[in-house]
């Protein structure tokens, strides 16, 4: 019965990644290699991030929101952006269109994140007898994160790969990328300083990720229009 709950949570956490891969043209063009490479890049990035966090961040005893520390954390969070930049531009991909490349990168990135951050707590916690909503919420959070990662990758590909984009859209693109990249800090602020509970934070994450996805989709299609 508890195994059942674990399976449910695992389906919620990892299912959308698989569905995304199989439902979109990604599977037709066989972009699994790209996703795996991105996942490896994510691993390395996560290691670098950890080292940075360990070096620069003080361990705070209290659970309060310290602006300076949070700023530092946000800056370290931008290593993620560097990682995505690397994955998008430096990796040698097989011949796939930009359109699919960013999706593969975003998917690989989100999946690696989900495996690294959520699999262990899920295995430990969701199999226990005690029932909590936490793991279902965590799965929802993983879904939001997937959407967010793909939007970030989309914006990144707009920034770094597409040369002939309308001038007027450039600041918007950068602003959106900035917002998406600082999302972890924003949620951390909401949780610590505003005292939001986990369900509220997850709701906020889902809402904003959908919003950002919509915006980046619009931006992407707007940029695509002149070229076609």
């Amino acid at each position: 019965m508890t195994m059942f709950h674990f399976l449910n949570c695992a389906i919620l956490t990892f299912g959308p990644h698989a569905v995304y891969y199989s439902a979109t043209p990604l599977s037709e063009y066989d972009t699994l290699g790209t996703s795996i490479k991105t996942a490896l890049v994510y691993l390395i990035t996560a290691l670098i991030k950890l080292v940075c966090l360990a070096t620069f961040l003080k361990v705070s005893e209290s659970d309060s929101f310290d602006p300076y520390q949070e700023l530092l954390k946000a800056l370290i969070g931008f290593i993620d952006v560097a990682g995505i930049y690397f994955a998008l531009t430096q990796l040698t991909h097989r011949n796939i269109s930009q359109n699919h490349k960013f999706q593969a990168v975003g998917l690989g990135w989100a999946f690696a994140d989900a495996v690294l951050h959520r699999l262990a707590p899920l295995w430990v916690g969701a199999r226990g007898l005690e029932f909590t909503w936490d793991y279902i919420l965590q799965g929802l959070e993983a879904n939001a994160n997937l959407v967010l990662c793909i939007s970030l990758a989309a914006l990144g590909s707009l920034m770094w790969l597409r040369k002939n984009k309308p001038k007027t859209l450039i600041p918007i693109i950068y602003a959106c990328a900035g917002i998406v990249a600082t999302m972890p800090s924003i949620t951390s602020y909401l949780r610590r300083s505003m005292g939001w509970h986990f369900p509220e934070v997850v709701g906020f994450e889902i809402f904003t990720s959908l919003l950002m996805a919509l915006i980046s989709w619009q931006l992407f299609s707007a940029c695509q229009r002149p070229s076609t």
Binding site: M1, T2, F4, H5, L7, N8, I11, L12, G15, P16, V19, Y20, S22, A23, T24, G128, L129, E130, F131, T132, I136
Partner: peptide, 27 residues
């Protein structure tokens, strides 16, 4: 331990399945 029932888990599975199907179709 506070435990959930089997029917609840089944319900969750049902909801998740339909969510994934909808997501698949949407994509």
């Amino acid at each position: 331990y506070q435990v959930a029932s089997v029917t609840f888990d089944l319900l969750v599975l049902l909801v998740l399945g339909s969510y994934l199907i909808v997501l698949f179709s949407f994509l």
